[in-house]
Design a protein around this nucleic acid. Sequence first.
DNA 1: AATGAATGAGTCTTCATTCAT
DNA 2: CATGAATGAAGACTCATTCAT
Lengths: 208, 208, 208, 208
Amino acid sequence: MAQRGRKKGSDGEASRALLLKIAADEFAENGYHETKISDIVKKAEVTQPTFYLYFKSKRAVFEELEDLFRSKLSELANDTRLDTGIDEESLPERIGDGLSAILRFFTQNRSLGRIGFFLSPSAGQLKEQIARKIEENLLAAANAGYFHVNFDMSIAANGLVGMIEQLTVSKLWTGQRSADELAKDIVSIVLYGLKKDCAGSEAITDKL
Amino acid sequence: MAQRGRKKGSDGEASRALLLKIAADEFAENGYHETKISDIVKKAEVTQPTFYLYFKSKRAVFEELEDLFRSKLSELANDTRLDTGIDEESLPERIGDGLSAILRFFTQNRSLGRIGFFLSPSAGQLKEQIARKIEENLLAAANAGYFHVNFDMSIAANGLVGMIEQLTVSKLWTGQRSADELAKDIVSIVLYGLKKDCAGSEAITDKL
Amino acid sequence: MAQRGRKKGSDGEASRALLLKIAADEFAENGYHETKISDIVKKAEVTQPTFYLYFKSKRAVFEELEDLFRSKLSELANDTRLDTGIDEESLPERIGDGLSAILRFFTQNRSLGRIGFFLSPSAGQLKEQIARKIEENLLAAANAGYFHVNFDMSIAANGLVGMIEQLTVSKLWTGQRSADELAKDIVSIVLYGLKKDCAGSEAITDKL
Amino acid sequence: MAQRGRKKGSDGEASRALLLKIAADEFAENGYHETKISDIVKKAEVTQPTFYLYFKSKRAVFEELEDLFRSKLSELANDTRLDTGIDEESLPERIGDGLSAILRFFTQNRSLGRIGFFLSPSAGQLKEQIARKIEENLLAAANAGYFHVNFDMSIAANGLVGMIEQLTVSKLWTGQRSADELAKDIVSIVLYGLKKDCAGSEAITDKL
DNA sequence: AATGAATGAGTCTTCATTCAT
DNA sequence: CATGAATGAAGACTCATTCAT
């Protein structure tokens, strides 16, 4: 008896959420232009005007999804930093944990990941940003004496981003590897390389 | 005696080549859908029907460019294999040379590279293919005793592809690094890792 | 309380019907290629997208009209057969009634008739089909002893179809003759010919 | 040594004639709009400008073919009238001869026939014209006492035109009947009808 | 006599978006 | 909250036709 007019309270929110989710999936699967508003609403079983009831435009939903990806990502960054604060872990462990977190994130946010990392026009900038952050960490570690000091960490950081990206697509999303397995392998390569006789390489391999 | 003004307006092959080149650049810069035939012909200073004189459709030019990229790439693969036949080089050198060749190729074929590696719907498959080829090589090297045998070379290969991709975009195409510099650094990471105290890492760094 | 002005602009079925009707008239008058979608929608006072709201393509409307013609025609065939079942009528009367029905049909479905009988690429086949059906009837009558048995009824049937066609255009659609008058005359020719002294010719002429 | 410049004298004329013939066949087979200049020149193994060397426009060739049909037809009319002047023949024979001539004409001028009788926008008028001429003849015969005087010869004439048209398409051009066979059957129907017991019908059937 | 190259003008079709209810 | 109906704007493609050689 309380609410009159609004049929059920949160029905609208539900429609909006549904549309957003479907939009994410469609964009992720077919790309921006290949995805038609008509496709989205068809799958959501609503009509086109309903879509515009909740979103200003096609571009707007897409941007909302980009933002959503970015905010989830930075949330992840914060969380990771937090529990890394314990600092009891060794460097390889810390790096591995960070990678794991990122990869798990991609596992759980596939559509959003595709949008923010592959489809978004600003995906390039985002990756650069991430690379820069990674670079900082690597630099810190280098200064702490863990790495060759004379190596260009910007290259390493960008390379790492590229590895993550490609392995996400080819191994994670295909279900061939789990986030943890992948993280372990990436750490192994990046820290010790493929070459035999490289001290420590066995260590990490065994550990994780 | 020399041709005056507009090359006689009568070299069809040239018109076609011009259109193809402009198309490549436009696609690379703006993506498939953002690129309008009208943009292409405007830049080529011809009219729309002229475009259709040389290409069956918009999709057709795009596919021609995809094919062109792929054929140039496989040509590169063949060439590289050939002069690697000398075999006087050490493994790191050979890997470095291969990487250099690839990166130089991307330097020289920026638009085509964007199309074939980023814009093409089959870019994913192509990368997988390349990864598979790299994997074979790594496997051979591993069997020859150069690498840890128990490491998953499929991961390494895909990771390498990802590194190349990302570094091409962020370092090569921005002009921050040359193909050779980049190749050297990638080899260094992939073979010896970032960790200090890893035998050989200095060696390669000095050498290249 | 009555609807004001433009029927509310909100009866889709009506819009569709209107477009279909106008399309029929335009096609009939100007042929397939001379008829532009832009003409149709202009006459219907809607915009082009509205057309595509109701029809998949230009070719599709045309085909719908072809189908419509054919189904109306076969409906006519069924109806005619039914009330001829009474069988109290003489042969000439039955033939005359059938012809009348066909000609009335053409009078009432001029545009559709032009489309199905003249414009449709399959008009030829349709006429052949009709001729075959007429032939069957004539054959039956011949076997019942009404006609010369040795006459080629396939010729007669096709000739009859041709007469109907030409007379529809030249006499019916110009308003010079009514369906019934025409039917009477056609029967007279086909059954008794033009030659004087042919028994029965007066009979039918008087009767109808 | 005589002609210089013109490579061979009549080469141009030959090209023109070839183009015209091919155009006729293409129009006849596919209709006006479905026939593209590019199709015609491809079949003629010349280029598009060559077409325009001989014809002002697409519409112009078509009109030339319409005219050609009409002039051949009126030539036929004249010829027929001439040798009918012998006048020794009976009426049915004369009519049969006339029909034969027309049908033979259509046999030999299929493409032109399709164009002038089916494709031409003025085909309707042409048929009316022919019908009018036939009507005159029938009227004359009627006045001479051969036919029922009270029958509407305009109907008969148009009916006859329709029969000719349909039988040409369905029997003549399919090769099922010869011009002479068809002429005989048409005369039989038009003069004596299908009904049995009609004096004279056997006569003609036997005769032709 | 003939052609390689190019174009003006037009048509179909699509899609994101809005109005009125 | 939701929809049936409609549209503005734009883009791909085609074809008859013409230059310059």
